[in-house]
Design a protein around this nucleic acid. Structure first.
Length: 158
DNA sequence: GCCAACGTTGGC
DNA sequence: GCCAACGTTGGC
């Protein structure tokens, strides 16, 4: 089983929104970056665990845990001219963009903030904390997963 | 194939 | 709101 981090702007779609969905499950649509697409299409397996990261908000950080709930399939929002993620270069016979469904697992006990992850020397190789990183889906090593999960059990302060 | 222009991401 | 970093586009 592999581990991932997936970013979402909470005003668009938060961990609480995922929790509130029917069957607590949602297609992770709108990814328009090849590297992120390739992770979903080529590497994600049902049951893989996901750190649900809130970006572009007051306190960026990890707010929940989710899991991969489907194999990859074509991102249907690319086919709909009215959708904000419409891409005329993707067509149903030869889709350019793919997605997986994700399922809610739980909220974290507290947010694991970007600031505290940046301050942790053990996480210095975690791509999330590296400057200029914009990738919305990142692989997480088992060691990194463990460190972050351990962090959740200690009080926030740094 | 190069690279400048442009749009987007996302922390601050 | 600002702006650095980065990916994509398109002219040549």
């Amino acid at each position: 089983m592999a581990y991932w981090l997936m970013k979402s702007e909470p005003e668009e779609f938060s961990i609480s929104d995922l929790e509130a969905r029917p069957e607590q499950r949602e297609p992770w649509d709108g990814v328009r970056n090849y590297q992120a697409r390739n992770f979903m299409r080529d590497q994600m397996k049902i049951g893989d665990k996901i750190l649900f990261y809130h970006s572009n908000c007051d306190v960026p950080g990890i707010y929940g845990i989710a899991e991969v709930a489907s194999e990859a399939y074509a991102d249907f929002t690319a086919f709909d001219p009215k959708d904000k993620h419409f891409d005329p270069k993707s067509d149903p016979d030869n889709p350019r963009w793919f997605l997986v469904d994700v399922r809610f697992v739980r909220h974290t006990r507290r947010p694991i903030t970007l600031a505290e992850m940046k301050a942790d020397p053990a996480l210095e190789d975690f791509p999330l904390v590296r400057r200029g990183n914009r990738l919305s889906i990142l692989p997480v090593t088992p060691a990194q997963w463990k460190l972050i999960m351990a962090r959740e059990k200690t009080p926030a302060h740094g």
